[in-house]
């Protein structure tokens, strides 16, 4: 079980994209040694949840609670969050 967790990435969704996907979190599995960019991970997610695809151009990605570029390589154990344009305040 521990090995499985080491090869997976937790993805968090909030607000409008959470409602479109119908989930607030999901787990994506990586093959051993697989290197995936944050952008590619988004594509993989959109294949499963096509309703989110129109929003992807607006999404900023955070990995381990920091904004990252789409080229950023996601590693097993990372926490990835999809940040649609924020509207706090």
């Amino acid at each position: 079980m521990g090995d499985k967790k080491l090869q997976s990435v937790q993805v968090l969704l909030f607000s409008v994209i959470r409602e479109q996907a119908g989930i607030d979190a999901t787990t994506l599995h990586l093959d051993p040694g697989e290197a995936v960019s944050a952008g590619a991970l988004l594509e993989r997610l959109a294949a499963t949840y096509p309703a989110i695809r129109p929003m992807l151009p607006l999404v900023r990605i955070a990995v381990n609670r920091e904004y990252v570029p789409r080229e950023h390589i996601v590693r097993a154990g990372d926490e990835v969050a999809l940040i649609t344009p924020v509207s706090g305040g």
Binding site: E19, R60, I61, P69, P85, V86, S87
Partner: peptide
Amino acid sequence: RWVEGDSAPEPFSSP
């Protein structure tokens, strides 16, 4: 409706 807010200038995600 969710309010679509301001995105930060994006030095991060611009290739």
